[in-house]
Design a protein around this nucleic acid. Structure first.
Length: 685
DNA sequence: GCAGCAATAAACAAGG
DNA sequence: CCCTTGTTTATTGCTG
């Protein structure tokens, strides 16, 4: 069952064919009339936004309730069987294999039954392996196994230590523990996970010991972290592992760490940017997964600062729910050793933390997935109806972005139209096509024009938070931005550095690639007569010659003043929204934008910004051009309609009172110009 | 295809 | 010498 996971659209289940039809329906509509449509994606509601996350939590919870009871019964039986077999002798471990897991598809049952990671969940969902019923069964199984793990732990504690040692030894030897003869294979794997967690603790102690701060001899040799099949090891488990063993791993390259690292790489996915870039490039996290990147950095930082610890900061133990004050690192270690030793409570807390991380990662994965689906869909849409050269252009741009992130972007000349670039489907690239990753595109020069019809100050004021937080290129020329910066200053004059600061303060976009845009700022200041350098006592300041500025582009903007006025008016009464809300609304407004909410330029701006981020996907889809709409993309200058734009001083026009006009206009608006972030990759600067 | 504009890159100089 | 500031030139992409 497929459901729309995007926007406020109705959650209607769709079959595969219906989904395609639906997508095609949207694709067939001229992009200039329609904003990106809600993406119908083959996912269940689990992959929806937070609401869905909550839903699934409830869903899981209810499933767990059922599972709990089942498990308790099952557990009792198993314990009885275990005890019986200890008495009567041990049977062949093969019985484990014959004992089927709960009714779960093979592909799932084959997985090591551990807590489902977001990745697994995604995979399951994407593969459409599970029906909701199956999913429920799986969840029950998962939880049951978790409970079982807990209870097994207790049980083991009550058993002879010999039993545990035996278990460990056998696992170390790659054999199946005897205790697992009576449990399903899932339970076996859960025991393994339990052991891994114990190993985490052991490793932790080991690491502490290696720091010379503990003298405890580990009771058992560190067991190799058993790689879980199919790369299914939970990322969060790795992270925990790395966190716990970070200091240790820095100085030792044991098999444990190797397997951990390798698995990390595996989890990142083979299509991700090279491991090296992830590791070496401090900005690579924008392209890759933080869950992978972060531990790496932590590991390195710990290497540099032996007294730093993921669980210790600002004199406080950062163990979840602890916050005990530890004056110094040794006392923290002592505290950690005493209060957070390997016991039920610690392992339970560890599990909780794992789940927290899982939730976060799931959330992140969902959003990434949605973004990718959106982009994929839009690319398809934009390429389908167009002639070959343009789609090539577009696709190669994206491809370039990927290759650029993999190779050395700096060395890449701007060859966005290079046909030699493989036309790799977008979906095959790094699973994370983030906003920032779009910025890693090579220097693709894209026309970058002012929203002539919208006062810059108005737009900036309306979307201030958005620009501040989203790395979206403001749809204004450098000249306009510089002018705005200067005009915003109390004395209408700024030093170059102050202009820089304004840029970085106002636009997240300009917090990157400083060398590039600063050069552009200087270039513009020097180039345009409208910027006048005034020698000051302290140095030089830049001012704006408004007359010159107005003379700059009179020919470009002309047309019906009333339309402009309408635009400004409708634009002005939009309440500024915070960035997150804006982004969300932009998402949701996309379909409406083309139809009903033409009067909401703020949303329009956001929609435009999103389009901008879409790497020109909708470029040249200007089959319908009509410039009068205030809801038209603010990115789009009005070409055909000649409006005298500049006479409208933005400072005058942006007043909130200058409005009161039509909110609705022609649903047509031109789409033909999309501006993307050419984005020199700052990562390697 | 061309002109114009804007973005980008880069060389260069002057001054702190 | 390095950095910042400022100027200039060249190139490229986009649009009309």
């Amino acid at each position: 069952m497929f459901q729309c996971v995007f926007s406020s659209s109705v959650l209607q289940p769709l079959s595969t064919s219906c989904l395609f039809k639906h997508l095609f329906y949207h694709s067939a509509t001229p992009a200039s009339q329609k904003q990106p449509e809600p993406i119908y994606s083959k996912k269940t509601e689990i992959q929806r936004q937070t609401v869905q996350a909550h839903s699934i939590k409830l869903f899981i919870f209810s499933a767990l309730q059922v599972a709990r009871q089942l498990l308790l019964q099952q557990q009792q039986q198993q314990q009885q069987q275990q005890q019986q077999q200890q008495v009567s002798g041990l049977k062949s471990p093969k019985r484990n294999d014959k004992q089927p897991a709960l009714q779960v598809p093979v592909s799932v049952a084959m997985m090591t039954p551990q807590v489902i990671t977001p990745q697994q969940m995604q995979q399951i969902l994407q593969q459409q392996v599970l029906s909701p019923q199956q999913l429920q069964v799986l969840l029950q199984q998962q939880q049951a196994l978790m409970l079982q793990q807990q209870q097994l732990q207790e049980f083991y504690k009550k058993q002879q230590e010999q039993l545990q040692l035996q278990l460990l030894q056998q696992q170390h030897a790659g054999k199946q523990p005897k205790e697992q003869q009576q449990v399903a294979t899932q339970q076996l794997a859960f025991q393994q996970q339990l052991l891994q967690m114990q190993q985490l603790q052991q490793q932790h102690l080991l690491s502490l010991q290696r720091q010379g701060l503990l003298t405890i001899q580990p009771g058992q040799p560190a067991l190799p972290l058993q790689p879980l099949p199919q790369g299914m090891i939970p990322t969060e488990l790795q992270q925990l592992w790395k966190e716990v063993t970070s200091a240790h791993s820095a100085e030792e390259t044991t098999g444990n760490n190797h397997s951990s690292l390798d698995l990390t790489t595996t989890c990142v996915s083979s299509s991700a940017p090279s491991k090296t870039s992830l590791i070496m490039n401090p900005h690579a996290s924008t392209n890759g997964q933080l869950s992978v990147h972060t531990p790496k950095r932590e590991s390195m930082s710990h290497e540099e600062h032996p007294h730093s610890h993921p669980l210790y900061g600002h004199g406080v133990c950062k163990w979840p729910g602890c916050e005990a004050v530890c004056e110094d690192f040794p006392s923290f270690l002592k505290h950690l050793n005493s209060e957070h030793a390997l016991d039920d409570r610690s392992t339970a807390q560890c599990r909780v933390q794992m789940q927290v991380v899982q939730q976060l990662e799931l959330q992140l994965a969902k959003d990434k997935e949605r973004l990718q689906a959106m982009m994929t869909h839009l690319h398809v849409k934009s390429t389908e109806p167009k002639a070959a050269p343009q789609p090539l252009n577009l696709v190669s741009s994206v491809t370039l972005s990927k290759s650029a992130s993999e190779a050395s972007p700096q060395s890449l000349p701007h060859t966005p139209t290079t046909p030699t670039a493989p036309l790799t489907p977008v979906t095959q690239g790094p699973s994370v096509i983030t906003t920032t990753s779009m910025h890693t595109v090579g220097p693709i020069r894209r026309r970058y024009s002012d929203k002539y019809n919208v006062p810059i100050s108005s737009d900036i004021a309306q979307n201030q938070e958005f620009y501040k937080n989203a790395e979206v290129r403001p749809p204004f020329t450098y000249a306009s931005l510089i002018r705005q910066a200067i005009l915003e200053s109390p004395e209408k004059q700024l030093t170059l550095n102050e202009i820089y600061n304004w840029f970085t303060r106002m636009f997240a976009y300009f917090r990157r690639n400083a060398a590039t845009w600063k050069n552009a700022v200087r270039h513009n200041l020097s180039l345009h007569k409208c910027f006048v350098r005034v020698e000051n006592v302290k140095g030089a300041v830049w001012t704006v010659d408004e007359v010159e500025f107005q003379k700059r582009r009179p020919q470009k903007i002309s047309g019906n003043p009333s339309l402009i006025k309408n635009m400004q008016s409708s634009h002005a009464y939009c309440t500024p929204l915070n960035a997150a809300l804006q982004a969300s609304m932009a998402e949701n407004s996309i379909p409406l934008y083309t139809t009903a909410s033409m009067g909401n330029p703020t949303l329009g701006n956001l929609a435009s910004a999103i389009r901008e981020e879409l790497n020109g996907a909708m470029e040249h889809t200007n089959s319908n051009e009509s410039d009068s709409s205030p809801g038209r993309s603010p990115m789009q200058p009005v070409h055909p309609v000649h409006v005298k734009e500049e006479p409208l001083d933005p400072e005058e026009a942006e007043g909130p009172l200058s409005l009161v006009t039509t909110a609705n206009h022609s649903p047509d608006f031109d789409h033909d110009r999309d501006y993307e972030d050419e984005a020199v990759n700052e990562d390697i600067e």
